[in-house]
Amino acid sequence: MTSTVLVVDDEPKLRRLVKEYLERDGFIVVEAGTGRRALELIAASRPDLVILDLGLPDLPGEEVAHLVRKDSDVPIVMLTAKAAENDRVMGLRLGADDYVVKPFSPRELVARVEAVLRRTRVAGAGGPQVASYGGGRLAIDAERREVGVDGDPVMLTRTEFDLLAALAARPGRAWSRLELISRVQGYDFEGYERTIDVHVKNLRRKLGDMPPSELILTVPGVGYKLGVERDA
């Protein structure tokens, strides 16, 4: 199945370079040089993944990501010249699935894109799988990638859904941060502890799992676990 990738960057030379490498690997590539054009293309062409530069001339990439996340869980790989850890954390808080710092290797970027899409396909494979936890309080539909809490739907990013699905695979089991980031990101990510903590914070907020948390519990010195059992 051929995937469509939207490349959003105001530098034509960089867009052409990324497009060339993606097309070599069989991707269909759509381009946008501004944030507003990117939003139009996301609505019109519904790409499978978005590579989003944060330094756009009209709308900041952060604002574009925020607007996209209001009604879409399309995977976002952020592209930026900001290398500080706090900048990476901010990107993840905005719903990014991955974060690549300029200058970068085009081959590495393609590998990151493939890894994100591969995780998405694996998580969505198989027949209908609707599981409930905690007496029906939490419901996870693996096929549709949908989550509900107390009967209300919750929109998660792909990374947040994959994280919740990993925790729900074995309720009550304590997962280390390294185990979780390996399952969710699929590669060794520098600064993984901060990364997984940000995703957990976002997930708790969306699930309404505010302190003292009941759904996703912190295991001191280890990581996290799902605090409710799967219903029979």
Rank of each mutant, 00 (worst) to 15 (best):
G221M: 00
G151S: 09
G221R: 09
V8I: 07
A131W: 09
P220T: 00
A125T: 12
G55K: 10
R88K: 13
E20L: 12
V149Q: 08
L138T: 06
A43P: 12
S3G: 14
K13W: 07
Q129W: 04
T80W: 02
D48R: 15
T80M: 07
D53F: 03
R46V: 12
D188Q: 04
D97V: 03
V219L: 09
L41N: 15
D87F: 06
G191P: 11
I42Y: 11
I216W: 06
E214I: 01
R36W: 05
P153K: 00
R15D: 04
R112A: 11
L117Y: 07
A44T: 15
V77G: 05
E85M: 14
R88E: 02
E193S: 14
E40M: 13
P75A: 03
D71P: 00
I51H: 08
V5S: 03
R69C: 05
D9W: 10
G35K: 08
G61R: 00
L59H: 11
E214R: 15
R170N: 13
R69K: 05
I51R: 07
V154G: 04
D87R: 04
Y99P: 14
L92Q: 03
L138E: 10
G33Y: 02
E146K: 13
P12N: 08
G221Y: 04
R36N: 14
I28H: 07
G35R: 09
V89I: 12
N86G: 12
H199S: 09
Y187C: 07
I140Q: 03
K102W: 09
K19R: 15
R119W: 05
I140M: 08
S72C: 04
R230G: 12
L56E: 02
S105Q: 10
Q129G: 11
V77C: 04
I51N: 09
R194W: 06
R205I: 06
V29M: 09
S132L: 06
A142F: 03
D53W: 00
D71C: 09
R15Y: 07
G208L: 06
Y21K: 15
D197K: 08
L117P: 12
E214V: 05
P103I: 00
T120N: 14
E179G: 02
L167F: 03
E40R: 15
Y192D: 08
V222H: 08
K13E: 02
K102A: 05
G33S: 15
L178Y: 04
D53N: 13
N202E: 06
P60A: 11
